[in-house]
Design a protein around this nucleic acid. Structure first.
Lengths: 155, 155
DNA sequence: ACTTTTTAGTTTCACATTGAACCATCAACC
DNA sequence: GGTTGATGGTTCAATGTGAAACTAAAAAGT
């Protein structure tokens, strides 16, 4: 017989909600992933950021897609190799690298984004507009009022 | 000026909810990740599965933590190298490999799990019990009634 | 009994991911 | 104007990740 952890009711409820939250986000993401074909999710994220914001320096992209700087260097290299983005040193500040979509990259994301948006919308179809808004509100409340130390300290 | 995608109101609402869903799950997971120290999230998932279910064959673990079989082989190898789990061929079915916690692995997950559970519970603190239940329900409804083909087909 | 076929794990490959170390460049300051 | 410090990217090491090819073993079909 496995040694089950005995949690308080509050813990059981929170862990249950957490598991459902994770499963839902993974399910929706997996469905979107099926649409984008040869691109990876991160590559799609980069193209999407450039598509909706215009040329950005590498750091700005990393911040937008919540990935580390080191990671982004590799992803950009792969995208550049595939001819989807262009790297260009900033004349004003030679440390910066400006990333912009190539024509091929623009075509690709312009064709892909509506499909992904439609797929995600379909995925949220089981929820009414009010339920979607409610879900968004509840998610927004998560992680609030919590300093990094306050959770790590106890025990 | 960036070329923004013009989505229908339904798309805007769904994408907005999706982004909040992703951010919430990433925030909570990141907080938990800060607790487990030298373990990776996947390693923690494996130990947690073994802790609460007892010895499992590799395939069962892969299914439980939603990772590919090939991936699990590597993760188990790393855990085995670190002395946290033990691999053992099944006598009844020589294809199977039974994975069990080593004493060190059991000690580690027994010490760690309550901390992670407490951290996640704290993370969900901003939500009332009713709100947590509501969040769980909404998440459960996502991804329902949707065959893999139904989303990929159109357009 | 001897094929298939299926199942369980491993291996391989390409890419992703983070954190740390590193390098170049700009900014501040004396 | 040369040192110091901060900033932006790249590189590196270790791990994770999935898909596909591969191996071994059990199960099924004949």
């Amino acid at each position: 017989m496995p040694t089950a952890h005995k949690g308080s009711p509050a813990e059981v409820a929170a862990l249950d909600a957490y598991i459902k939250l994770m499963r839902a986000s993974e399910t929706v993401t997996a469905r979107a992933h099926g649409i984008i074909g040869d691109l990876t999710l991160t590559q799609f994220g980069v193209l999407e950021a450039l598509y909706h914001r215009g040329p950005l320096c590498a750091g700005a992209i990393a911040e937008k897609i919540l990935k580390s700087a080191g990671n982004l260097t590799l992803v950009l290299s792969n995208l550049e190799r595939d001819g989807l983005v262009v790297r260009q040193r900033d004349c004003q500040d030679a440390r910066r690298v400006i990333i912009s979509l190539s024509p091929a990259g623009r075509d690709k994301i312009a064709a892909l984004f509506p499909k992904v948006a439609a797929a995600i919308t379909a995925e949220f179809g089981p929820l009414s507009p009010a339920e979607q808004a409610m879900l968004g509100e509840l998610c927004k409340k998560l992680g609030r009022g919590r300093t990094p130390s306050s959770t790590a300290a106890r025990e």
